[in-house]
Amino acid sequence: MNWSLVPQQFVTGILNGGTIGLIALGIVLIYKSSEVFNFAHGHLVMFGAFLTWWFTGGGAEPGAGFIDLPLWGAVVAALIVSMGLGLVIERFALRPMTGQPLLAIMLMTLGLAQLFEGTTAILFGVELKSNFPAPFSPSDVLVIPFPGAFGDAIRLKYTLVATFVVATLAAVVFIWFFNSTKTGLAMRATAEDHEVARSVGIKVRRVFGLSWGIAGVIATLGGVLLATVSGVSLNLSTVALIAFPAILLGGLESLGGALLGGFAIGLVQALVQASRLIEVRNSSEIAPYLLLLVVLLIRPEGLFGQKRIERI
């Protein structure tokens, strides 16, 4: 371990974890409300990033008078479109599958993933879009003095700090919504038992629609955050896959767990890079899964997952 690198990597890891946690949240939300593991979430993330890029006028020739919104406007527009997209997916892909085996529904989400991959490629092209408007230039760096660290300071890119703040804020707002509002209560009730939820007058279909709408929004937000760090490309869906170990680590049913899982994964990925051994440094892709393996061996339901309450 190269200890002088650890403080820097620690902070970077946590900051990266925010986005991972946010993306994980979207998957947990769908799983909680309908027990469907949404394999298409990564593609929603990717698609959201492309949408935002398109709304900023990224796809047009310069000065072609195409849609040309400032970044914030593009984000808002993309969020609205992706909310609608979530509703449409629920209405036309998931609702007709009601009552089918869960496996069939999950395969449907895999199909959706392929659909998004193809559609995005056709609409926006397959090459990396490097002209995603960055709110900060790469040289905007926050320097925090930290004696003992490499160069006696921790250097943080503004972009990274900003993504962390946005991701965490969004996650906290969403968790608050879920835990403290009436609609959130209806969603939690539906997540537990559809039939009982129906019996107390909750409009279960509306709850499903809402869940997918919110998941779409969260995905797009995650996509934008990933894009500001690494640009817009079809690869973003694969990058978003890192949310899977985060979810399993935190526990499939726990929103807070997903967020913390995201931090843990970000941390592990960054910390292995502080190693002196090249083999360990290069393992940042597999390290999260190793951690996952160990945690699941000890706690099969994840760190904060629900233990099934069974009265004997």
Partner: peptide
């Protein structure tokens, strides 16, 4: 008209008060 389902079907992971509040959500 509200039905009380057979077999004490409650929202197990919610608290007692949250369970009660779900009845008034609509």
């Amino acid at each position: 008209i509200v039905q009380v389902l057979e077999g004490r079907r409650l929202f197990e992971h919610l608290t007692v008060e949250e369970n009660l509040r779900t009845g008034a959500v609509f």
